[in-house]
Design a protein around this nucleic acid. Structure first.
Lengths: 129, 129
DNA sequence: TTGACACATGCCGATATGGGCATACGATGG
DNA sequence: CCATCGTATGCCCATATCGGCATGTGTCAA
């Protein structure tokens, strides 16, 4: 069966599919944080994060595939550097929820009601709870 | 062998472990977005997102376990509401990278160098590339 | 050229995911 | 009390993940 014709059970979205998935991994996040301090070779990162070199390489591969990291060959080393541009959309998506956590949670519903009223929009349904 | 004594190969972090993992799922993100418009019952969400009811329930379960969503029984319906507080830490973590995407990427390294110089920090290694 | 060093990759194993489907559960209405 | 609606769960499957380990690849030094 050709894989491309198969639309049945798919497991989980690939971790390399997007930044959201890439940063879901704690170790990968730590790598990104470290990289904020400048380019570093694989072994360096592995040591600092207490993981094996292959592990570091694999995580870096993922980060590279989603474009959060770039590589630069420096002699026999491979310097990994941060490319945070891919994090921006994620940050912005989360920003869309900012007003929902800045207000008191208990009054969230009221707030939503206010919004609805103010914008006079409620296109998709007629439910009036 | 007792499972609890096993520290060998562990697959991936549970999707219910934290908000980072919870929002890694596109459908789950869509649910959160919808919920921004106010409380909604499961079936409603499922219909709007074009997924089956069990699926919606499962995703909502995950979101509930990480505290991004709360439930309220309303008659024989279960109204799901957004609780975005858990998104705040994520947003803040990403905020730590803001300055890395606002500047020109090509000058990122220089920028990092400036930072290093300015803060006079470079404690962990002696590599001087 | 050979050896050493820095990484990348391949393979195996255990896990948990997400989808489909059937069904159990809980509350309401008749 | 029973039928029904609205949800939650359980089970099966295929997948891909992440960890460990061994090994392949590329670069520099002697």
């Amino acid at each position: 069966m050709p894989i491309w014709a198969y639309d049945g059970a798919m497991a989980r979205a690939a971790t390399t599919s997007d930044a959201f998935n890439a940063i879901a991994e704690p170790q990968r996040r730590e790598i990104l944080v470290l990289l904020r301090g400048g380019e570093r070779p694989v072994t360096d990162l592995a040591r600092d994060l207490g993981m094996t070199q292959p592990q570091a390489s694999k995580h870096l591969r993922v980060l590279r595939e989603v474009g959060l990291v770039r590589v630069r060959g420096a002699g026999r080393q491979r310097l990994y550097g941060l490319d945070a541009r891919g994090l921006r959309p994620v940050h912005e998506w989360l920003g869309g929820f900012e007003r929902f956590w800045s207000g008191s949670f208990d009054r969230l519903d009221e707030y939503v009601q206010e919004l609805k009223q103010a914008k006079q929009e409620g296109p998709h349904d007629g439910d009036d709870q």
